[in-house]
């Protein structure tokens, strides 16, 4: 409304006084604009996730089969999720780090439900590549976690960014242990 009356005033100050007609013109454009925006919304919104896509948004994983020191990758919402059964050494290493000194300060306990199992999205927070370090023999970077080959980001055994261009720690997806061995992600 504010813009409308402003435009009307601006035009009324011109030599010809035609403010009534201008009001009709502006009101017409405003109505047409609202109509166009209303019509455009369904056409844009159809690109958002469809109901069946949203319905597949959570999965359950049995972690009892993962040996200590082993990692598995599962697909959740089309993205890789890393689940690592950490060794005592890895847990100790992750907990020993001073959180304040990190680029993205988070303590290890904030990032896990159960310290034995680390659950993070396997997507580098820099530009979205999948870091290495899941399979035996792959480069794990300088901090015993993951290493992203695209632009050289190093993550530690808690999935926190320690070196390289990535701005944030590997994201922890929403998950919960529904029993001792079952994780429900999503």
């Amino acid at each position: 409304m504010a813009t409308k009356s402003k435009e009307v005033q601006a035009d009324a100050s011109q030599p010809e006084n035609k403010s009534r007609r201008d009001f009709i013109v502006v009101a017409t454009y405003a109505m047409a604009g609202m109509g166009a925006a209303t019509a455009a919304w369904p056409l844009i919104n159809q690109m958002n996730p469809a109901a069946d896509t949203l319905a597949l948004a959570n999965i359950e994983i049995d972690v009892s089969k993962i040996e200590v020191g082993q990692s598995i990758t599962v697909k959740w919402r089309g993205k890789p999720v890393f689940i690592r059964h950490r060794t005592e050494a890895e847990i100790a290493e992750a907990e020993a780090v001073e959180a304040e000194a990190l680029r993205h300060p988070e303590t290890d306990t904030d990032r896990v439900e159960n310290p034995e199992y680390l659950v993070v999205l396997g997507i580098c927070t820099h530009l979205g590549c999948v870091p290495l370090g899941q399979k035996v023999g792959e480069v794990r970077g300088e901090y015993d976690g993951w290493f992203c080959p695209c632009h050289g980001s190093h993550y530690d055994s808690s999935g926190r960014i320690r070196k390289g261009p990535a701005p944030l720690n590997l994201e922890v997806p929403p998950y919960a242990f529904t029993s001792d061995n079952i994780i429900r992600i999503g």
């Binding site: 369904p42 056409l43 919104n45 159809q46 958002n48 469809a50 109901a51 069946d52 896509t53």
Partner: peptide, 13 residues
């Protein structure tokens, strides 16, 4: 049918 049921506003389009 998915457009009609699941896609946002798919039925309308």
């Amino acid at each position: 049918e998915r457009i009609m049921r699941d896609v946002n506003h798919g039925w309308l389009i």
